[in-house]
Design a protein around this nucleic acid. Structure first.
Length: 824
RNA sequence: GCCCUGGUGGCGGAAUCGGUAGACGCGUCGGACUUAAAAUCCGGUUGGAGUUAAAUCCAGUGCCAGUUCAAGUCUGGCCCAGGGCACCA
């Protein structure tokens, strides 16, 4: 074995051997229990960044650990390869997005292999390849048949920069999630997936996800936004119309003083009197022009105009005016709001501004308020509410809604904020939506035997203001599958999140050309046992995937109802306290790290300083420290190689120093195993590697010549160290294993066991406290009884001195650990 | 405003059950080896008091209370930071 550690040399060597021997292939048929470890697949943007390195290293260590513990592990990788950057790059360089994507995939694949990741590449999935998007299209058609995919004219989010519409989930603070451009409203006919059908079950099943962090579950619950309330209907005085409102506060119904409809409310024109028409039209035109940001800004002063018409409150017979104001949202509830200024802060602000009246109907009996200065929104007791006076407001919600139900002017209603998922994109580089439009037959799904609908190659990427796909001469014109007459293809492609909503299923049966996946295979491998990825997908990808899973289950394509059993959301990789980004110039190139230190150092370091879920601050000194540590490990092995024998036999009665060493190894096995099993605390795992290495050095430093017993202990310690480190330092340990004469691969070895009796020191340190403060520490035999421990503590010189002249009130003995003497 | 997460040395962070606070590392200081440097090895490193040196003592896990023989850990009330949601009726 060489004296010095040359990572680049041994890493290249082993990567080649592993690839040739196909060691990471996962068989479908195995007696072992299955384990599915998955990283969120990357967008092939060009090069790996440190966030990828962290993500894939975490999952790789988990996969290897599980494999060593007797599982048949599925650990695949693929490419989320449709999307705008490829198209933008194509426009810029006049190339084809496919070429750009293929080149990036090739480069990044090379990098992944350099990192020593244990992927089964035979299961690779690439979403932009026809053998994959054929099945994305097929799944879309199944959703269409089930009524879960539909087309409608709607106000949609439009990003001018990207030249396409966006899903609600992709609008962050009124801006595009990708380019930060301000999002506008447009009215377009677009394809939607009916995720709202699953709102309730998506919310309910969050409880089943015990392996998910509370933060992600809360974010999803908030996004789904369930609320319980009532629909109340109000008759219009001036005509026959009715205005229904959704409210969570039916208890305040006697306090209504006006009613607001959204500027886009469907009946608004009929609700406007001729005298008010002009003002209302102007107001609506302004609202239309406003961006999402302007409109949703909470510090904006509320505005509105009266419509001139009135409604009757069926509970009081009172007549109140109708207004339109943009604080009412057409997409939520009924698009109309009953306004109770005394008990709602928004209504209060609006009423103040326009001098609308205010009526108090809920009071805190202890501390009544007239609501002149602010709305009273806390619980209370009803007043000015006829037969409901004196009732608690929670009880009144039910009673009042019931009265509306009985009277035929209302109903109980559960409302969700979740909207349907807009999946149309006016872009080229995506899976074409497989439908055609026929003048005679209308919307026609493409027959399944005609899939995939291939992306055309004859497109002009230099066009502005429309999707490049529309420039194809061969794509658009087709024949109707129904009547055979001329028809036009849908030119919209699917949101890439559709592709990524099922890729983890495809890995179970990646080469199937008859189906997206065979049912028995998907049921065998799924759900994913451990999913690892960034928190930025807390809503988007994870919610869509949950929806897909449930929809596909209801179609009978699979038998589970949640895709990801355990979710680890890894923290960001920072440099100097802020997120690595090209614009800040604080990125670290993985290639440079591989070249200068090797992949094992990169893997060790990225796991070392922070627990996986927390942000990780990259430091050059830290990398250096990990590199030095691996050198130290290497020297420990190489300098002792001559004394290490793989077939050592440990004698049963060891000398004290050897017994202590033996115990330290068992303590390390136990600690490391538990740290990995318990939330993958790799940072403490690595601390324990260091402790063990330090201990072996210490032990070795005290010996000049080794006898047989010493050699056996040394062999046990070092071989165990190699096994324990093998999931992290994958190349170094493999090389060492072979240099020491090991057969096969270290990565096929069984994970070491520990003996509970040996995984602790041979004696205990008894902590002696007086009044809860540590005063002495005594080495003691662990077999001592409580009484003996007590006597031992009392016999301490220190204790005698400090208790002199005082009364011992009480003595607490914690077996094997501590004695606390309480004195006065 | 609502929700989630977190707050421990100069820094990253340890600390199954309430039982030795600060593991391990980074940084730093000192020493060994060397003509010298690098590399490597050994040792110190929460703050304060104390001492030639030690022993030793006191304080200490965001703040204030509480429970307990014993609190970083449990309870109540706050403060701060990060993230998410937000005119959702």
């Amino acid at each position: 074995m060489k004296d010095a550690y040359f990572p680049q040399e041994i890493e290249k060597k082993w990567q080649k051997i592993w690839e040739e021997k196909d060691v990471f292939k996962t068989p479908d048929d195995s007696d072992k229990p299955k384990y599915y470890a998955l990283s969120m697949f990357p967008y092939p943007s060009g090069k790996l960044h440190m966030g990828h390195v962290r993500n894939y290293t975490i999952t790789d260590v988990i996969a290897r650990f599980k494999k060593m513990n007797g599982f048949n592990v599925l650990h695949p990788m693929g490419w989320d390869s449709f999307g705008l950057p490829a198209e933008n790059a194509a426009m810029k360089h006049g190339a084809n997005p496919e070429t750009w994507t293929d080149e990036n995939i090739a480069y990044m694949t090379k990098q992944l292999k350099m990192l020593g990741l244990s992927y089964d590449w035979d299961r690779e999935v690439t979403t932009c390849k026809p053998d994959y998007y054929k099945w994305t299209q097929w799944l879309f058609l199944q959703l269409y048949k089930k009524g879960l995919a539909y087309k409608k004219e709607a106000a949609v989010n439009w990003c001018e920069e990207c030249g396409t519409v966006l899903a609600n989930e992709q609008v962050i603070d009124g801006k595009c999630w990708r380019c930060d451009h301000v999002v506008e409203k447009k009215y377009l006919s677009q394809w939607f997936l009916k995720i709202t059908d699953y709102a309730e079950v998506l919310l309910e099943d969050l409880d089943k996800l015990t392996g998910w962090g509370e933060n992600v579950k809360t974010m999803q619950a908030n996004w789904i936004g369930k609320s319980q309330g009532a629909i109340l209907k109000f008759k219009v005085v001036e005509n026959e119309l009715e205005v229904p409102v959704y409210t969570t506060r039916p208890d305040t119904v006697h306090g209504i003083t006006y009613l607001v409809v959204a500027p886009e409310y469907k009946d608004i024109e009929e609700l406007t009197t001729p005298e008010n028409k002009e003002a209302v039209e102007t107001y609506r035109a302004n609202a239309r022009k406003m961006t999402e940001i302007e409109r949703l800004s909470t510090d904006r002063v509320k505005t509105g105009v009266p419509l001139g018409t009135h409604c009757i409150n069926p509970f009081t017979g009172e007549k109140f005016p109708l207004w339109t104001a943009d604080y009412a949202l057409v997409e939520y509830g009924t698009g109309a709001v009953m306004a109770v200024p005394a008990h709602d802060t928004r209504d209060f602000d609006f009423a103040k501004k326009y001098n609308l009246p205010l009526k108090v109907v809920i009071q805190n009996p202890e501390n009544p308020s007239d609501c002149k200065n602010e709305a009273y929104t806390e619980p209370g007791v009803l007043i000015n509410s006829n037969e409901f006076d004196g009732m608690g407001n929670e009880e009144a919600k039910k009673a009042i809604t019931q009265k509306a139900v009985d009277g035929g002017f209302g109903e109980f209603k559960t409302q969700y904020r979740l909207r349907d998922w807009l999946v149309s994109r006016q872009r080229y580089w995506g899976a074409p939506i497989p439908v055609v439009y026929c003048d005679k037959c209308g919307i026609q799904p493409v027959p399944e035997d005609q899939l995939p609908v291939l992306l055309p190659k004859d497109v002009d990427f230099s066009v502005v203001g429309k999707s490049p796909i529309t420039t194809s001469k061969t794509f658009v014109n087709t024949t109707c599958p129904c009547c055979g007459g001329p028809a036009k293809r849908e030119t919209d492609t699917m949101d890439t999140f559709v592709c990524s909503s099922w890729y983890y299923m495809r890995y179970s049966d990646a080469k199937n050309d008859k189906m997206p996946f065979a049912k028995d295979k998907v049921n065998k491998w799924l759900p994913v046992d451990q999913y690892v990825g960034g928190i930025e997908h807390a809503i988007l990808h994870l919610l869509y995937s949950r929806f897909f899973t449930k929809a596909l289950r209801d179609m009978g394509l699979l038998d589970f109802d949640e895709p990801f059993k355990n979710l680890l959301t890894q923290g960001m990789v920072l440099k100097d306290g802020s997120k690595m980004s090209k614009s800040k110039g604080n990125t670290v190139d993985p290639d440079e790290i591989f070249e200068n230190y090797g992949a094992d150092t990169a893997r060790l370091f990225i796991l070392s300083d922070s627990p996986p879920a927390r942000d990780f601050d990259w430091s050059d000194a830290g990398v250096e420290g990990c590199y030095k540590f691996l050198n130290r490990v290497w020297r420990l092995i190489s300098s002792n190689a001559g004394d290490i024998n793989l077939s050592y036999t440990l004698p049963s009665n060891l000398r004290k120093d050897n017994d202590d060493m033996l115990r330290l190894v068992h303590i390390a096995i136990k600690g490391i195993t538990n740290d990995i099993s318990n939330d993958f605390q790799f940072n403490t795992v690595i601390s324990k590697y260091r402790e063990l290495v330090n201990a072996i050095y210490d032990w070795r430093g005290k010996k000049s010549n080794l006898d047989d017993e010493d050699k056996a202990i040394l062999s046990f310690a070092i071989i165990t160290l190699i096994k324990l480190m093998s999931p992290v330092a994958v190349h170094l340990t493999e090389e060492a294993w072979h240099e020491l004469g090991g057969d096969g691969s270290i990565h096929d070895i069984k994970w070491p066991d520990w003996n509970e009796n040996l995984a602790k020191a041979s004696s205990i340190t008894l902590v002696v406290q007086i009044n809860g403060k540590v005063k002495d520490k005594i080495e003691a035999d662990e077999a001592l009884t409580e009484e003996e421990l007590k006597q031992l503590a009392l016999s301490s010189e220190k204790v005698k001195e400090l208790t002199e002249g005082k009364t011992i009130v009480k003595t607490i003995v914690v077996p094997k650990k501590l004695v606390n003497i309480v004195v006065k």
